[in-house]
Simulated scan of single mutants.
Amino acid sequence: MVSGEWAWSDEVYVMHGFEPGQIVPTTPLMLAHKHPEDRARFDGVLRRAAETGATFSSVHRIVDAGGGTRTLAVTGQGRRDPASGRVVELVGYFIDVTDSHRVAAQRDATASIRASAERRAVIEQAKGMVMVVYGVEEAEAFEVLREVSNRTNVAVRDLADRLVGLIAGPGVTVFPTREVIDAFLKDPDNPEPPTTNG
């Protein structure tokens, strides 16, 4: 509320790690529980809402009374005194979205790990192609790819993807010749297609 005193539901007390009615909720207390990295932003949201009465919303972290971190979504708006038009109260809802944020973070991490594994896999395949064609060891094969990457300003993973594409295209039935690989490494943007049987 604009006065600095708040009325919390039992659920909001629990979100903050308290028994219902255990403490008197105030703006300073509430801000003290905001995660240090989110506190200033949330304070700004409240101040603007108290000044304008406009609808407000925020997703931010709190540190509950037990030291645990939770993620809350808050939405609300100001209420004005009909006579003066001044904002006299902020009303709204707290929603605990900790679990959904955790699931989303895990999903993002899993996707990132999967993408990283896929990038590594295509680089390994490209190194294998270079090893076969040039008869070099793995470290030398990677050095070949890295040199071409530096010279052409094409990321190694993208270069590897294009190189592997030479044997993954439709109608490709033979491994590219050394000449085709030479041409590709000389100019990855204009590689010669491998020959096909038939």
Rank of each mutant, 00 (worst) to 15 (best):
Trp8His: 08
Asp10Gly: 03
Val12Leu: 13
Tyr13Asp: 00
His16Asn: 15
Phe18Glu: 00
Pro20Arg: 00
Ile23Met: 05
Leu29His: 07
Met30Thr: 08
Leu31Ser: 00
Leu31Ile: 00
Ala40Gly: 03
Ala40Pro: 01
Gly44Tyr: 06
Leu46Cys: 03
Ala50Asp: 12
Thr55Asp: 13
Ser57Glu: 15
Ser57Tyr: 12
Val59Met: 12
Arg61Ile: 02
Gly66Val: 02
Ala73Tyr: 06
Ala73Leu: 11
Gly76Tyr: 06
Gly78Phe: 11
Ser84Glu: 01
Arg86Gln: 15
Val87Ala: 11
Leu90Trp: 02
Leu90Phe: 03
Tyr93Pro: 02
Phe94His: 04
Thr98Cys: 09
Arg102Pro: 06
Arg102Ala: 14
Ala104Asn: 09
Ala105Cys: 06
Gln106Lys: 07
Arg107Lys: 12
Asp108Arg: 11
Asp108Cys: 05
Val122Ala: 10
Val122Ser: 08
Gln125Tyr: 02
Lys127Asn: 10
Ala139His: 10
Ala139Pro: 08
Ala139Asp: 14
Arg157Ser: 15
Ala160Cys: 11
Arg162Lys: 14
Arg162Pro: 07
Leu163Cys: 12
Pro170Asn: 05
Thr173Trp: 02
Phe184Asn: 13
Lys186Val: 10
Asp187Val: 09
Asp189Phe: 15
Asp189Arg: 15
Asn190Arg: 14
Pro191Glu: 15
Thr196Asp: 09
Gly198Lys: 05
